[in-house]
Amino acid sequence: MPVKIDQDKCGGISSCPGEGLCIKLCEKGALENDNNHIVLIEENCDDCDLCIQNCPNQAIIKD
């Protein structure tokens, strides 16, 4: 099951302490920068959870 992004917690790339760390960590290209927002490309997500573990805002979750 792919991850979900809590846009409230995320607050956009410009205010991220890691400047979009999740995008840089994801090697499957499942996370992209869309006008300062993180968008998920579901079919690319491999469920590795690396983004969940490393998000400085705990903004990436799974149900």
């Binding site: 890691g18 760390l21 840089k24 960590l25 690396l50 573990q53 490393n54």
Partner: peptide
């Protein structure tokens, strides 16, 4: 600290 991003040279 952010061990993995540091190890990968991202941070």
């Amino acid at each position: 600290g952010p061990v993995l991003p540091i190890a990968r040279g991202i941070l």
